[in-house]
Design a protein around this nucleic acid. Sequence first.
DNA 1: ATAAACCTAACGAGTGTTCAGTATATACGA
DNA 2: TCGTATATACTGAACACTCGTTAGGTTTAT
Lengths: 208, 208
Amino acid sequence: MSSQTVKAIPRRKTREEILELSAPLFARHGYDGVSMRDVAAAVGLTQAALYYHFSDKDQLYLDAVTCEFQEKEAALKAMLAGNGTPWERLERFVAGLARMMATDKDFLRLVQWVLLDTDEARQGILAKEVFRDMFVAVHDLACELDPHRDAHLLAMSIFGLVIFHFQTGATRKFMPGHRPHQDDPAVLARHVCELLRRGLAAADGEAR
Amino acid sequence: MSSQTVKAIPRRKTREEILELSAPLFARHGYDGVSMRDVAAAVGLTQAALYYHFSDKDQLYLDAVTCEFQEKEAALKAMLAGNGTPWERLERFVAGLARMMATDKDFLRLVQWVLLDTDEARQGILAKEVFRDMFVAVHDLACELDPHRDAHLLAMSIFGLVIFHFQTGATRKFMPGHRPHQDDPAVLARHVCELLRRGLAAADGEAR
DNA sequence: ATAAACCTAACGAGTGTTCAGTATATACGA
DNA sequence: TCGTATATACTGAACACTCGTTAGGTTTAT
């Protein structure tokens, strides 16, 4: 760190700025709904400049999504780590996931876009590099919660109970029985945890 | 069938044919991913002909989605109707919904596209004309199942447990603990029903 | 001098949409 | 029964625009 060129952090890397500014665009409008001109305008560059940093639109999209997911992944894993009984960790995770989905709508939408993606290669990359780590942690937790039940199905159900609720956010307002406090992530988290705790606790003592 | 003009069923109405053939296209590639040329080619017409039947692409999309949903709506309501205890009807519905999601991938994808739609007017129309009826039936069932719990949240959880599982269909294969039989709608239905039955039954006797 | 980082300008292909015209079938008066 | 008017259901060709991408030139820092 002495004789080396001192340029260290001369200014934020343009590449990262492109990724961070294009991610919300892709989240809101999807791959087809965002043009290279849109991205360039958002960053304050010309379209041609984007091709200096990325080979093509596909690569830009993939990198932007991956980057966005890796940020959230750290936060999610932090919720699951730490000490406490399995049930305490579950409640912490469900509450944290719900808060994240309620707060960061862009991230939620990005998840939805990825689930709709028909590009098998891209979906495989994102599944393995991004979803998998999150899922493994919840999967292991599910094993601890109820060793008799299919941990894969149970882990997916935990994600589904939280994520689907916020997926339907805009649509839910038109449904009967809707009250504003249901949009509160803490309320949803309590509902989900009660459902799971009783559903699993009842099975604990059984032969099955 | 005697004196009437014998042309009866001269041929299927073009308009309906456009709707039925464009729906799978929109399901697979989304609004932005399907061009009027794509639709025209699928039906065997020129693009201009589409504008004889629909004012613009937006209208064509809206009608195609609405049409597709109304077909499924009848099937879903049939599952909930009929006699039996609330629990029997729930099991019938969950099994039927799971089978539908596993069978008709296009319909599942259409649901996902609608949930991602940012056009508020369009989402409002589809929510009220299509989702609402399905939801009301499940909402009422939720009231019967457990009057002490928030029926709105519970109904949404029932949908979420089933739909999210199939939403992640392609991605789930990369996750740990995956086994082929989990793709069987009957297996998923049993998992969901057990979770719900125990979760709710345990709450039944409580003060709460 | 050299390389990184960016711009201007354009290419060809694809987009939603429109307009003038054309078969085909039915309805009507002679 | 015939010809003609009329509405229906389309076609062919184009318009103005946007798309992803690229070639070649320019600035800037080392």
